[in-house]
Computed example of a mutant assay.
Amino acid sequence: MNPDKYILIDCDPGVDDCFAITMALSQNPKVKVVGITCVNGNVNIKQVAINTVRTVKLCGMLDQVPIFKGCGDPVIIMPGAIDSTAFHGKDGMGDVPDVEPRADESTGACPEKAYVLVTRVKSLNPHEEHGVNAIMRLAKEYEGKLEILAIGPLTNIAIAVRLDPDLPKRLKALHILGGTLRGHGNITPCSEYNFYVDPEAAQMTLRSFSKHCLVRLVTYETTLDHAVPVDWLDQLLNGKDKKRTFFREIYKRCQNIQLHKISEGLLRGYTICDIYAVCVALEPNCVKKSRKLRMGVELGGHLARGSLIIDHRNKGSPFLTEGTIEVIEEICLVQLKDMLARAFS
């Protein structure tokens, strides 16, 4: 049976990426994940690769899904390190390296000083090909069929399209988790994390792809507007099987932070950002409302760098995308929950 979709996941695990990867892999064989490319984001690139391997191993698909290390730095390196270890933990996965599958020799990594994990490159990543090269190659191999699910900073995608300007024409679609629609940021007052980590890559990607292939954008506010009910997710993760135990443990740190925000009225429920982009990519009929808009990413300033500027009134600017991008505003929460539940069935 031929798959209905061919997906390449570009990611930076992060706990929410782990949920997203598991959701996508659970759709096999209907959905074929042709590869996963890793990018510096929530944690450093070495740790991102380790976290990806642990997740794919949990799903029993290490022999089916190739994993590639991509870019370890943004397009332009700015002063000061940016990561989300305060939220995801020092290892990006809740600082529980002993939860199966463990971060040890079996996944190509071994614990060092409790949190810092070092990589045994050969066992972690037998695919020596760089993630950017893998993106270009797979787009040619699956020309006209491949959809990229980009749920981290867009560095790999931006570099790939600079090396291969025809890349957008080869894709069926590009699905992005990033940016804001109403300027409600999660890293600065107005900037979303993925775009803030590498604003130049976000701008390069949006401008390069908008004219040549379908681009769907799930913004941070869309995740906030469709929060997962606390009781529902707690019940879903309540079980003794390996997968539920793994996610229950790696999610505890994020969970406690979000429960505190919920108690303060800052969140409506759990927001596992990347899962929304997966749902849109794999079940497009979950979209209840969207708009096609032109936009650009602010590259300067002290307050607004990395913020997404949307041309709501069609004023125009040479710094905006030439083509429109479909901004997802409303999705069916029932479908999202159903897809997430199937990942644990």
Rank of each mutant, 00 (worst) to 15 (best):
K252W: 15
Q203C: 10
V39M: 01
E329P: 02
D198Q: 08
D231C: 10
G41K: 07
I272Y: 00
A20R: 00
G269C: 05
G323H: 03
I50E: 05
I325R: 05
W232L: 06
E283V: 13
R268N: 15
E141L: 14
M339V: 01
V31M: 01
A227Q: 03
P153L: 09
K292Q: 07
S208N: 12
V334N: 10
V278C: 00
S317V: 03
G60D: 11
A103S: 08
V215S: 05
D241Q: 11
L177H: 11
D225M: 13
I76L: 11
I325N: 02
V39Y: 06
V287E: 01
K292L: 06
G70L: 03
L167D: 01
C38V: 07
E147T: 14
A173Q: 08
D311N: 09
Y276P: 00
C213K: 10
K243P: 04
V334K: 11
D338L: 00
P168L: 08
D231I: 13
D63M: 03
Y270D: 01
A103F: 08
P153Y: 09
P74G: 01
L236G: 03
E322I: 07
T37D: 07
E330R: 12
L58S: 07
A158C: 09
L299W: 02
P199W: 09
G144L: 03
V197Y: 10
N256E: 15
R342A: 13
M204A: 15
K288S: 00
L146D: 08
L181R: 13
T223W: 02
N133S: 05
A304S: 15
F19S: 01
T324E: 09
Q335N: 13
H127N: 11
D104I: 07
M23S: 01
V218N: 12
D12K: 03
P101D: 08
E200H: 14
P74M: 01
K169P: 04
N186Q: 06
A173H: 08
H184K: 12
N238D: 14
N2I: 15
A343C: 10
V53G: 11
P74K: 03
I187E: 06
A114L: 11
A304L: 14
E105G: 14
A281L: 11
H175L: 11
S191A: 11
V53L: 07
H302N: 12
G185I: 10
T107V: 13
N194F: 04
R313Y: 12
M204C: 13
C332Y: 00
L149P: 08
I9W: 02
H312G: 07
C18D: 04
R291Q: 04
R248V: 11
E147F: 12
N256I: 14
V75R: 07
I187W: 14
A304T: 13
E112I: 13
D164S: 09
K243L: 13
V99H: 11
R170G: 07
P165F: 06
K211Y: 12
K240L: 15
Q27A: 10
P168D: 09
V287D: 00
H88K: 10
V99I: 15
